[in-house]
Computed example of a mutant assay.
Amino acid sequence: MTARPRIADYMARDLILLRPDMEILHAMKILLEKRISGAPVVDAEGHLVGVLSKKDCLRAALHGAYYQEWGGQVAAFMSAPAATLDVDLDLVEATESFLASPYRRFPVLREGELVGQISRADLLRALVDNWSG
């Protein structure tokens, strides 16, 4: 029996990374310019400390509009701790994780270290590639 394909074979490895001390408006502009729905947030040593999504950015924008005070650091708006997937997870297990959560993308870890990210689109592409005749 052959092993099922793993998310390591389909995850993005060239990541846009944000810092917790980054200005939230700058982070929003990065997400919009790069046309991505979210990005991992890492500390100075490169350790994953959270994820900033467009939904988190909407929360920051609403807060700014309501209080007439824009700004703040990414750390104040990011989701932390980040929900992650292991690099060796197979496609079926990864699909189950996506279906059981509201997230559009997950950071991928190998032994606690950030090594990639997988999105719903990446996973769907992998499933179609592997199981369509």
Score class of each variant (00 low, 15 high):
1 M>Y: 12
1 M>N: 12
4 R>M: 15
5 P>N: 06
6 R>Q: 10
8 A>R: 14
8 A>N: 13
8 A>L: 13
9 D>C: 00
9 D>K: 07
11 M>T: 08
11 M>P: 01
13 R>Y: 06
15 L>M: 06
18 L>N: 01
20 P>I: 00
22 M>L: 15
22 M>N: 04
22 M>H: 09
22 M>Y: 06
23 E>I: 05
23 E>P: 00
24 I>A: 00
25 L>V: 14
25 L>Q: 14
25 L>N: 15
26 H>S: 14
28 M>L: 13
28 M>G: 10
30 I>A: 11
31 L>R: 11
31 L>D: 14
32 L>G: 10
32 L>Q: 14
33 E>M: 12
33 E>A: 13
33 E>I: 09
34 K>G: 06
35 R>I: 04
35 R>C: 05
35 R>W: 08
35 R>L: 08
36 I>E: 09
38 G>D: 07
38 G>E: 04
39 A>R: 05
39 A>M: 09
41 V>L: 02
44 A>M: 13
44 A>G: 10
46 G>S: 04
48 L>T: 01
50 G>M: 11
50 G>E: 13
51 V>I: 15
53 S>W: 05
53 S>E: 02
54 K>H: 15
55 K>I: 13
56 D>A: 04
56 D>K: 00
57 C>M: 12
58 L>W: 12
58 L>I: 13
59 R>V: 11
60 A>S: 02
61 A>H: 06
66 Y>R: 14
66 Y>H: 14
69 E>W: 09
70 W>P: 14
71 G>N: 01
71 G>V: 05
72 G>M: 08
72 G>T: 07
74 V>W: 09
74 V>S: 00
75 A>E: 15
75 A>T: 11
75 A>G: 10
77 F>Y: 15
77 F>D: 03
78 M>E: 07
78 M>K: 03
79 S>W: 04
80 A>D: 13
80 A>E: 14
80 A>I: 08
81 P>N: 08
81 P>G: 06
82 A>D: 03
82 A>E: 01
83 A>F: 09
84 T>F: 04
85 L>Q: 02
85 L>R: 07
86 D>T: 08
87 V>L: 02
87 V>I: 11
88 D>G: 11
90 D>R: 04
91 L>V: 07
92 V>P: 00
93 E>V: 00
93 E>L: 12
94 A>M: 03
94 A>T: 04
94 A>K: 02
95 T>F: 14
97 S>R: 15
97 S>M: 10
98 F>P: 03
100 A>N: 10
102 P>T: 02
104 R>W: 09
104 R>H: 13
104 R>I: 01
107 P>M: 01
109 L>Q: 03
109 L>W: 07
110 R>H: 15
110 R>I: 06
112 G>Q: 12
112 G>T: 09
113 E>L: 12
114 L>Q: 02
114 L>V: 01
115 V>L: 07
115 V>Q: 09
116 G>H: 03
117 Q>P: 00
117 Q>L: 15
118 I>E: 03
119 S>M: 03
119 S>H: 01
119 S>W: 07
119 S>C: 06
122 D>F: 00
122 D>G: 04
124 L>Y: 11
125 R>Y: 09
125 R>A: 10
126 A>I: 04
126 A>E: 08
128 V>K: 12
129 D>L: 14
129 D>I: 10
130 N>V: 06
130 N>D: 11
131 W>V: 01
132 S>Y: 12
132 S>I: 13
